[in-house]
Write a protein that binds this DNA or RNA. Structure first.
Lengths: 342, 342
DNA sequence: CTGAAAGCGCTAACAC
DNA sequence: GTGTTAGCGCTTTCAG
């Protein structure tokens, strides 16, 4: 690995000059510049990020926190974040943290010791202590939340409007004639979950429909809990729903599995909806009606927000809300094609 | 951020001493040690990885390369790698590189400039130039391949025996009475693909079954290509297969979608099998018979291999092969439960 | 326009 | 057991 010294020596200039052509931090004579560039090429030199970071206190690295359970939603989001970050010369240091993670604060501070220039937190499943830590961190380090927690403190946030999204879904179901709808929540602690649930509750009220506690099941994000939720609705609840609204696609897929195992037809007997529009939703049978989160745009905004905060440490906190797009598929609409047209 | 100097001053010792209690690199008097530890605690000091790395040329960071298309297989693998790496104090720097990535070599060298201590390459979809680069890199940097390319050069590799795995699958199908089997390949350039295909071809031969070129479709990893493959078998091929063997779960799911769209019953009319055992395979209808890759164990071995190579730069190249586990589900066996029991 | 020199936070000889 | 010192590869005053 060639160093800046090697380049300087070979080019017959000082390291300062090399640094200057590298960073364009001061004017350099065209000829010497050309020469230095040539030597850089020859030696296949490229500056050590560690040394650079050590001086500048910047690592050109963005830390990303994702939950540790398998939901390809986060995989898709993560990829978009990586793309967006790379466009601006940043690399990604990922850490997954979940309910089960032992010392969450340690994981976070580990990221900080690695001098990440900022943090993008995707649906953080943290305990009190680590959330405190995260918020304190946010005072000095650019931190952006995607689908964040229920917080008093204002923080930089990017998310899809779950309240309006679920309302669209309920409207869609209402128009199809559904009057008894069940709901599968994710984890109550999360704002994103509460928003969606509130959208459901308010929509029912607006249509003059009853909100039955027995038709609300508290899931936990996993497919299995969607399965359990559907079982609950069809075995323990006094009223059978004609539609199941799930806070996430994954749980909707679980519910669909249960319903089919009972020999129920979807959507003829029961309609099912999800949220997120993960890639697999199109390939489930029946394909799942859902609310699409514009992931690529969200990722870009999150990175943008991070960059802005890096450059202007005292910039006002921003909250960027995207609108979800209703994707009508066969799980609610019998008129739709059952299978994907490729 | 407190530095080692702050700790030294506060504790009334030299930075060397602090460094020594930190790294246990030389004996330190018990009392001073205790004191230093106390100060470290008080100041919430924790060493800067950048400065450390700058001296030691170690970053405690492992680079991971994953393909850039959406296959949750890589998400699952990535998570297991992260867990395994963290156990040894390593963080993960991920980069996704795919067929479409513009300058692959740049992505790789970027990782190197960031001083990753090693690289784990998951099914690399690279061009000639970047593969050359990768191999040259492997001479000086620990590089481990998971499901690697077809290479002459010996490299550290961890993978699941696709040859034997597919043979198990064919045997299973043969025992169920299937005599006309179709095959969906992934990308021919990959050894992992060739192994699996070879397993298919050899198994057919051993059972005295014909290997029909019209019943081999070249897919590309994506779900869509599995769909196309099935369409091909049922519209363009002269013989209808009674079973479709796919090189990956994802394409098997695509095939299943096509078959169902044609009103065919699975497995009664056509059986379908996959490979990998991604999480979603259990939730597809019908659940997919497949060959499970022991991801957690593979990830651990990959990290182990990396560590060993770090410590012994001239260690012999190793090739660790895992056996896949046949997971029989409803997509081949009508006797199995159609739906998941939760 | 260019260079010498200091120093970022840490580790590792080398002395004591 | 402990401290002094040099230096990792780079950026950045400060002089020229």
């Amino acid at each position: 690995m060639a160093t800046i010294k090697d380049v300087a020596r070979q080019a017959g200039v000082s390291v300062t000059t090399v640094s200057r052509v590298l960073n364009e931090t001061a004017p350099v004579n065209e000829k010497t510049k050309k020469n230095v560039l040539k030597v850089i090429e020859e030696l296949r030199y490229s500056p050590s990020m560690m040394a650079q970071g050590m001086r500048t206190k910047k690592s050109k690295t963005l830390g990303i926190i994702i939950p540790d359970y398998i939901n390809s939603f986060y995989y898709e989001l993560f990829k978009d974040l990586e793309d967006a970050a790379r466009k601006h010369g940043y690399n990604i240091l990922v850490t997954s943290i979940g309910e089960g993670t032992q010392d969450k604060t340690a994981y976070l501070s580990d990221l900080v010791n690695r001098n990440v220039d900022g943090l993008v937190v995707c649906t953080y499943q943290g305990d009190k202590a680590s959330i405190e830590y995260l918020l304190k961190l946010a005072e000095t380090l650019p931190v952006v939340f995607i689908d964040h927690l229920n917080l008093d403190k204002p923080v930089n946030t990017v998310y899809t409007d779950g309240y309006a999204g679920i309302k669209k879904i309920v409207q869609h179901l209402y128009q199809l004639g559904h009057r008894e709808m069940a709901y599968i929540t994710s984890i109550p602690r999360y704002k994103v979950n509460n928003d969606r649930y509130q959208g459901f509750a308010d929509a029912l009220r607006e249509y003059g429909l009853p909100l039955r506690p027995e038709l609300v099941y508290e899931g936990n994000y996993h497919i299995e809990s969607g399965y359990e939720a559907a079982r609950h609705f069809f075995t323990a609840a006094p009223v059978r729903p004609t539609a199941i609204v799930s806070a996430t696609d994954l749980m909707a897929i679980g519910a669909i599995n249960y319903l089919k195992s009972m020999g129920l037809k979807i959507p003829e007997d029961v309609a099912v909806t999800g949220f997120d529009d993960i890639h697999m939703s199109r390939w489930i049978s029946p394909p799942v009606t859902t609310c699409r989160q514009p992931l690529a745009a969200m990722a870009e905004q999150a990175v943008e927000l991070f960059l802005h905060r890096s450059r202007h440490p005292h910039a006002k906190v921003k909250r960027i809300i995207f609108e979800g797009e209703l994707m009508i598929r066969r799980s609610t609409d019998p008129a739709k094609e059952e299978f994907v047209q490729v």
